[in-house]
Simulated scan of single mutants.
Amino acid sequence: MATSGDAVLAVEGLRMRYGTTDVLHDVTFRVGRGEVRALLGPNGAGKSTTIEILEGFRMRSAGRVEVLGADPAHGGERWRARLGVVLQSWRDHGKWRVRELLAHLGRYYARYSTERIRRPWDADELIAAVGLSEHAGSKIRTLSGGQRRRLDVAIGIVGRPELLFLDEPTAGFDPEARHGFHDLVRGLAAEQDTTILLTTHDLAEAEKLADRIAILNGGRIVADGTAPELAKRITGEDQVSWTVGGRRFEQSTRESTRFVHGLFQRYGESLADLEVRRSSLEDTYLALVHQAEEVPR
């Protein structure tokens, strides 16, 4: 886990205006080296605009942004070679074969190798890493949607990026492919020291992969923390349900472990159907989004 003083990405007071409409309002957050950070939010929250500014594809209206030590608005070719981007979709020539495309793209990165980072990946090693070994010689147009998405990920990491942007990366994946991709992401962060900024609508995916989660709504960061921290912030209570003598009871408590221990002491063997429901990331996300929508603009 990275420390806050080792920020690969730092955003402070970021604002974006289209005409007379503000779509980002004072967005501030940091991402440490080797950290997997998820950016969650409903459609129209400002996620895509934020990511495009960080990637250097869109100019901001105000605020300070530093990515890998540089302002992305002025990042040069060598700086861009240190980034990886996986978009939701992209167009290509379907006649390319998987191996030849990755080998071709990889040659663009060879000149940017350093003593610490060897660029690019070996094509076959990369193909194996994303689970496409059986399709290395296949034409892209013959791949299924899930296989095509794995290729998108391979294209994004072919240059062994120090910072990887993943925009809805598992869209179209079946459960097995999603599980394999999650292993890949964790391996990139742990073994390759890759920092990852992930946007997703899959709350379970964010909770599983991310060290920290920022929730963006209405162009504002409405919460930022680990999944347990966010859950405690919004409710701070668990729901305990139990049955005694045929009657069903329910109680909210901040100390569910202590409360359950007290129930056993009080009721002993007559206690039945005990259930403890802890706040989930989904509960937290919905509550925070609804709270933000109620705040006057």
Rank of each mutant, 00 (worst) to 15 (best):
S4M: 15
D122W: 03
R37M: 15
L9N: 01
R99M: 06
H74E: 13
P296I: 09
Q88Y: 02
D26R: 07
P228N: 09
V23Y: 01
K95N: 10
I213W: 02
I215M: 12
D167K: 01
I51K: 05
Q192L: 11
L216T: 01
V240T: 06
L271E: 00
W96T: 01
V27F: 00
A223V: 05
P175T: 00
N43G: 06
V65I: 07
R278C: 06
G56Y: 07
Y108I: 04
V222Q: 08
K95W: 12
V185H: 03
Q88F: 04
T142S: 12
A73I: 04
T226Y: 06
D6G: 03
G46C: 04
E237V: 14
L143H: 02
R178I: 11
S144L: 12
L188V: 13
T170Y: 00
T142R: 09
E191T: 13
D202Q: 10
H25A: 08
Q291N: 07
L83Y: 00
D122H: 06
V98H: 01
V8R: 09
E12K: 15
K232D: 13
L274A: 05
R212D: 03
I155K: 15
G63W: 07
H179R: 12
R247K: 13
V67S: 02
L102A: 03
L9Y: 01
H261R: 14
T243Y: 04
G219W: 01
G76V: 13
S138M: 09
E293W: 00
A287R: 14
G69C: 11
A128C: 13
E282D: 14
E229S: 09
G69I: 10
D224H: 03
G69R: 05
V289W: 07
A128F: 03
L9Q: 04
T195P: 11
I127P: 06
A110D: 03
V185Y: 01
L40R: 05
A154T: 07
A190C: 04
T194M: 08
L164Y: 07
L40Q: 03
M59G: 06
T200F: 05
G236N: 09
E294D: 09
E77W: 01
I127Q: 06
Y109C: 04
L83Q: 02
L39C: 01
E168A: 06
F264N: 02
V67R: 02
G137W: 07
G44K: 09
G41E: 05
A129N: 03
G44I: 09
T200I: 10
A154N: 09
A73T: 11
E282C: 02
F29V: 02
E168C: 08
W121F: 14
L164M: 14
G145P: 09
F249H: 15
E250P: 00
W79N: 00
E168F: 06
D22S: 07
V36K: 00
D193L: 10
R116T: 12
D193V: 09
G156N: 13
